[in-house]
């Protein structure tokens, strides 16, 4: 009897692996943690979208929990996301935008058309800051705590229900 059980071992192994791989099939490959989680926001020195003569750096993100949203005029999902960002700003969240791989003219036009929830927008025409953030598309959103450390990362679209279900709880969590 014991010997028979040993013969079942390959089948058991197969079943374990089958369950494991089957679960992998339903995973979203874009749902993965940012490599910058719990890391300091990368250093940068860029002008603002609003004022080409004003240069900002990473110290902009210190002293207060800030939501950094990477967007671009060329990105259709960013347009759909704007109402959610406006609501977050209305609820007292500090937002800073990164205008990613855009022209100043188009970026400013976007804000004029869809609203501007951002305290200020970092102008990143070559995508250098985006690259250091590991951004591979837009929109992407990073929550940065008062010490300038990245605490939460949202890949892609912030759905209307995400505002109260995901983003606001995260903001509250890191405000303490």
């Amino acid at each position: 009897m014991k010997r028979r059980l040993i013969l079942l071992l390959p089948l058991a192994l197969f079943l374990v692996l089958a369950v494991f791989f089957y679960q992998g099939l339903s995973l979203n490959p874009f749902q993965r943690d940012s490599a910058l989680m719990a890391e300091t926001f990368p250093a940068f020195e860029l002008t603002t979208l609003e004022d080409p003569s004003r240069t900002v750096d990473e110290s902009l993100l210190q002293g207060e929990v800030t939501l950094v949203n990477v967007w671009g005029e060329w990105c259709p999902t960013c347009k759909q996301e704007m109402p959610q960002l406006l609501e977050l700003a209305e609820r007292g969240v500090r937002l800073v935008g990164v205008d990613y791989k855009d022209t100043r003219e188009k970026g400013l036009g976007f804000l004029a058309e869809f609203g501007n929830p951002f305290e200020v927008n970092i102008f990143d025409p070559d995508g250098d800051l985006g690259f250091d953030l590991g951004v591979y598309g837009a929109p992407e959103t990073f929550l940065v705590d008062a010490d300038g450390v990245i605490r939460y990362h949202h890949t892609g679209y912030i759905k209307p229900q995400d505002v109260t279900e995901v983003i606001l709880p995260e903001v509250e969590k890191w405000r303490e």
Partner: peptide, 8 residues
């Protein structure tokens, strides 16, 4: 690259 985009 890994520092920015992860082991992926």
């Amino acid at each position: 690259m890994v520092d920015r985009f992860g082991d992926y």
